[in-house]
Write a protein that binds this DNA or RNA. Sequence first.
RNA 1: GCGGGCGUCGCCAAGUGGUUAAGGCAGCGGCUUGUGGUGCCGCCAUCCGGGGGUUCGAAUCCCCUCGUCCGCCCCA
Length: 433
Amino acid sequence: MEKLQSLRGMVDLLPEQTALWQQVEACARQQFRRAALAEIRTPILETTELFARGIGAATDVVGKEMYTFEDRSQRSCTLRPEGTASVVRAVLQHGLLSQGPQRLWYGGPMFRYERPQAGRQRQFHQLGVELLGFGDPRSDAEAIAIAWDLLMALGIGSLSLELNSLGDAADRALYREELVQWLEARRHQLDPEAQARISTNPLRILDSKSTDTQAVLAEAPLLADSLSEASRQRFNRVRQALDQLGIPYQLNPRLVRGLDYYTHTAFEITSAELGAQATVCGGGRYDGLVEQLGGAPTPAVGWAIGLERLVLLLSTTKTSDGLVQGPRPDVYLVSRGEAAELQALALAQQLRRGGCAVDLDLSGAAFAKQLKRADRSGAPWALLIGDGEIDQGVVILKNLRHSGEQRLDPQGAVKMLLAELCDAGPQSLHPQT
RNA sequence: GCGGGCGUCGCCAAGUGGUUAAGGCAGCGGCUUGUGGUGCCGCCAUCCGGGGGUUCGAAUCCCCUCGUCCGCCCCA
């Protein structure tokens, strides 16, 4: 029989990895709370139209990477390839903007039908922030700062922030015309992909990784030169704010980004340690999207972080090695004999209700076996109960670090363990040495 | 969608045409029928991702396929 397997590009996170993920998520939540962001959760499945309209039909994401299928009523559905469109849809659907600007974060799985490689899977996870209803240049800087500080708080080093301004719709239209003209004149020097893009999405040619294409582009007109005075000033104010915040960045006039909805500020945070898929965080301003999806014109800025890539960085970085440990029980309950096993069950419940992490051995195996497992579990304490203890009305509280043990009445042992626990907090659960 | 590398036990890994497919870790059992962490003993792939083919004979050669990894495209 064929072995059952997960779908290509869909990976399991096993217990030894989830501890690190939980740490990242906890850190993010803390940062988001400090930044006064509220969480929003939207469905993973949306109408295909949402993404077609929101992200742009000419983009690769919509053109060839979506998981799209018809449901039982022949409605075209798509597994979300990114989060922003859904968040804007939800905000509009529930009229949240009528209560004022929204400071939101979201997280969860995204789906893109691509060939898996390092740092890229078909189901991956993002954490994103959207500031809706904010047009001030300071909000661009603040959004970036939230991302930057989160990455710093996680202890990720060697990151670089690349920054560009795409201007507003008018600037882009103007520049697009100029660029197309320039490209047409050199069509024969471009690779086939770039040639095809001249008509579909010329700006995307700019950040091509092809060295040949880049060589040709060296002389190309720059978007920065087509920006209106207002756009230019706006960009300067964003940069000023970043300077004020002490966040280092590099201007990258070729940074365009793949989704159609970006305007003005576009940015990427990359790491040299990630291989080909170097972008950890990408985002920017999207002043046109809310209107595009049927709302009133509303300025907005946001970004998304790829969690797989983040975790990849954290497990590569030496400093974080060994810091994250899976859950260890505080107490391991060993019991043998019918009455003892029942009492152990009850004590486990009592200890857990008291806040103690308890692993209960259900095997009924020999004491030696159970003790061995107790040792492996990493628990600092074991509670042993057998027929002898039942007869005497005691339990054995054993310190697995020092091998000391004492016989106590059951309630005395519970009190002792809970005191160890609660008085000094979780740290005290793991006696040193 | 395209290019290249790889695919032997849960994990790591020897083996590169010839009778029973090393070893290590983990797991299980025992030495120790109620006391762990060390030690010792035993068990743990009729099978080498799957399917065809070549051969007297293949995990070892060929083809197809699937998976995986790396890169391209693109993105988080």
